[in-house]
Design a protein around this nucleic acid. Structure first.
Lengths: 187, 187
DNA sequence: GTCTATAGGGCGATAGAC
DNA sequence: GTCTATCGCCCTATAGAC
């Protein structure tokens, strides 16, 4: 057994979500989080760049899956179709964590600073999807626009998912939003 | 003549943009800005909620114009068409300030914290446009999706505008992005 | 206007694993 | 010995409270 309990990062992330949900983001200090996780304040900043970032360490998985989903889309698929396949694939990153996603969404919705960070992650997702589209031959500005539109559908689908009871899957909601988007531009 | 120079807010905003461009956002302290504007630090926070907000005081004008543009769209226009008319109208808020917009865009592009704030303003624009669409009868989720798509086109158009030499107007770039978006979903 | 708590970065010390 | 995780203490600027 080592000198320290293992998985300090995981304990910090869990402690932070709990405290943000219990007493609010602004009312929670980094020291509160560190104490609950059994480490010092300094260790928190070793794992997370700032107090917001602790809620967003899963963003990279979502991005990676979405990029893979775009790459795996059939060669004949158009840009919007491929981008849609990407964000639908990304749903796998969250699908089995409905309760966690819902709690987290509530915390984020209650604080503009956290919304900013979420938007930054969604923008990064959009850029990653756009790059994946360019890799399969989609030129700009079509790649950026298709990616942004697909991410918008993902966001709308995600909101519907956490607003519901979780019986309908996230991917189902996102697919519905994508269909609606096609209808809008086509009609 | 009063006891203080007039337009402290304007001087602060100008001083901030200059300093952020000259020496970087992070290297600039609020005190630097206040000194150049000839006021105290305390006065800065009287006008701006935080160090980022000083770059975004024009956002409300853009939002107001966009909402008016949606409301003024012909009754027969579809959701995406009306949302597009909104963001095209919003271009009037920036059209005659190309140099200012370009400098500001460079500063924002160099700092993730400022990008976050910009994304928050774009999200607010999207919500305002969506609300204007609902006011003219568009149901959800079509209103949210059309608004997000139009704002994405605005952003793409804006980026092309500041990347260019300014001879083509912002509205022209945004209209082109909207056309591309329609083509994407329609094809 | 002054006073203060918190965020967040820099740097070196320490204690184990290997 | 090296490497890595953690701590401790110092510091400044932000931003809110009084």
């Amino acid at each position: 057994m080592g000198r320290w309990e293992p998985d300090a990062q995981g304990r910090l992330a869990r402690a932070a979500l709990e405290l943000y949900a219990e007493q609010g983001y602004e009312q929670t200090t980094v020291q509160d989080i560190a104490e609950r996780a059994g480490v010092t304040e300094r260790t928190f900043f070793r794992y997370f760049a700032d107090k917001r970032e602790v809620l967003f360490d899963g963003a990279h998985t979502l991005e990676r899956l979405a990029v893979a989903g775009v790459a795996a889309a059939p060669p004949g698929a158009g840009p919007l179709e491929a981008a849609g396949a990407g964000v639908v694939r990304g749903c796998d990153a969250l699908a089995d964590r409905f309760q966690h996603a819902r709690t987290r969404a509530g915390v984020v919705a209650a604080n503009p600073g956290l919304q900013e960070r979420e938007l930054l992650k969604m923008a990064a997702l959009g850029r990653a999807v756009a790059a994946a589209l360019r890799d399969r031959g989609t030129p700009e500005p079509a790649a950026a626009l298709a990616a942004e539109a697909a991410v918008a559908a993902f966001r709308v689908g995600f909101e519907a998912w956490v607003a519901g009871d979780g019986r309908r899957g996230l991917d189902d909601h996102v697919r519905a939003a994508l269909a609606e988007l096609r209808a809008l531009a086509g009609g």
